[in-house]
């Protein structure tokens, strides 16, 4: 048994309806944003993830590939997958701030016009999917 503590503990919510690989990607992104994961940190090996949570190793591979594609992580041959060093500069905090601010404004507006939280989420989802369709 390895004594090393993993840099991140993944969790899976099988009822969320979100694809498992997407959940892993989101959790890494979140951890990077919160500073729990920093540049150079090693992500747990696929085998370790499989030991942590009941998940298909192919799914973990896929999530790591996606993270590499996003520039958040990089695979080093024979060593494992690491968070990229320039991830801090990569995180577009300023952009995020702008988006968050405008979202807050939008929520205020929605509340005033009588939408509850579920309705807002439905609306948001619908637009997200619509955009996705247009993209594809």
């Amino acid at each position: 048994m390895e004594d090393k503590r993993p840099s991140i503990y993944f969790r899976l919510d099988s009822r969320s309806g979100v694809a498992p690989y997407r959940q892993l990607v989101d959790q890494v992104r979140h951890a990077v944003k919160l500073g729990q994961l920093r540049g150079g940190d090693q992500l747990p090996s696929v085998r370790d993830v499989v030991t942590q949570v009941t998940i298909n190793p192919n799914t973990v591979h896929r999530a790591y590939r996606e993270l590499e594609h996003l520039g958040i992580a990089e695979g080093r041959l024979g060593l494992g997958t690491f968070i990229t060093h320039d991830v801090d500069s990569l995180s577009r905090e300023s952009d995020h701030d702008v988006v968050e601010e405008s979202l807050k404004q939008w929520i205020k507006l929605a509340r005033r016009s009588g939408l509850d939280e579920d309705q807002m989420l439905t609306l948001l989802r619908q637009f997200l999917h619509h955009n996705e369709q247009v993209r594809s």
């Binding site: 498992p20 499989v50 030991t51 949570v53 009941t54 998940i55 298909n56 192919n58």
Partner: peptide, 29 residues
């Protein structure tokens, strides 16, 4: 988890029958 470890260690293919849809979501591709 034992099963998934085997898949990750040996690259075995698996065909499993199940009634639990949550299994499908979390471990099957």
């Amino acid at each position: 988890r034992l099963l998934m470890r085997q898949v990750s260690d040996n690259g075995s293919s698996v065909i499993l029958s199940t009634h639990a849809l949550s299994d499908v979501e979390s471990i099957c591709d």
